[in-house]
Amino acid sequence: MLKDLFSKLNKKVNETNSNDGTFENSASIMTKCPNCKKILYSKELYKRLNVCTNCNHHLPITSVERMEALMDEDTATVLFEEVASANPLEFPNYGSKLEKDQQKTGLNEAVVCAEGEIDGTRTVVAIMDSRFRMGSMGSAVGEKLARSFNYATERGLPVIVFTASGGARMQEGIISLMQMAKVSVAVEKHSQAGLLYIAYMTNPTTGGVSASFASVGDINLAETGALIGFAGRRVIEETIKEKLPDDFQTAEFLLKHGQLDRVVDRNDMKDYLGKILRMHSGV
């Protein structure tokens, strides 16, 4: 059940916090906001889902923490936890990198999928985790996402995907690129069944994930301050021989350019999603 998994995962996450550096919330009493440099009580920060109480900077949050914050209590079941990566091209060092991230995060892959209720609406939710191979998408991530959409299509449920990814997982070569198509065919089937898909882009959503399911929700939301883009800033600057503005490829930049429906603060996430889901549930 979800609860067991979450407590198991959280324990692992907490154990690694002290030497990880990025997820300091529960490991130490105080946390310094990387943006405004203010020293904050970790407990307070945690209560605000790792959003700085001083400057509203959104610090990283794990997939499991987000899932817990989002789902109504005791309603969620984890899905497809059995799907894990292989090393199809026998790419050098890939296997050991996977193992390392599994130990670091307590996850077996870069996405956690679950079925549960959000403000009373039954929903399939997939949350990517950028701590695991930068949230990159290989066969296992593609399979879990495609299964999530298929599962929702069969049961007439809406889907929310929280994206967080550096793109395709290069160690799986062309197979990873094809996962973009694989998830897309499942998204399209779900869409043709008249069901709701909300894409919720979190920091960072780039490359092949940005250029597939992340950008084609019926409703596209993004979290405050999230980096979202196709190509990397450095590559673009080198190509066009021009310095890019600071806000380039932020959620706010995308909103300005008409690429998003809304930018959402993490602490409003559940409220917005709950309302949107209710308005599509036909009750």
């Binding site: 973009m180 198509a181 897309s184 065919v185 998204v187 399209e188 089937k189 869409s191 043709q192 940005s210 250029a211 597939s212 399911f213 992340a214 950008s215 084609v216 979202i228 883009g229 196709f230 190509a231 990397g232 590559v235 673009i236 190509t239 066009i240 021009e242 890019l244 380039f248 490829q249 350019h257 008409g258 690429q259």
Partner: peptide, 26 residues
């Protein structure tokens, strides 16, 4: 590959590719 440029990003390079994938699926 898709062109990595400023205007391309501003006009939704990601969305344009993503849209083709789902529409081609259908």
């Amino acid at each position: 590959g898709a062109y990595p440029g400023r205007a391309a990003e501003e006009r939704g390079q990601s969305e344009s590719i993503a849209r083709n994938l789902v529409e081609m699926a259908g």
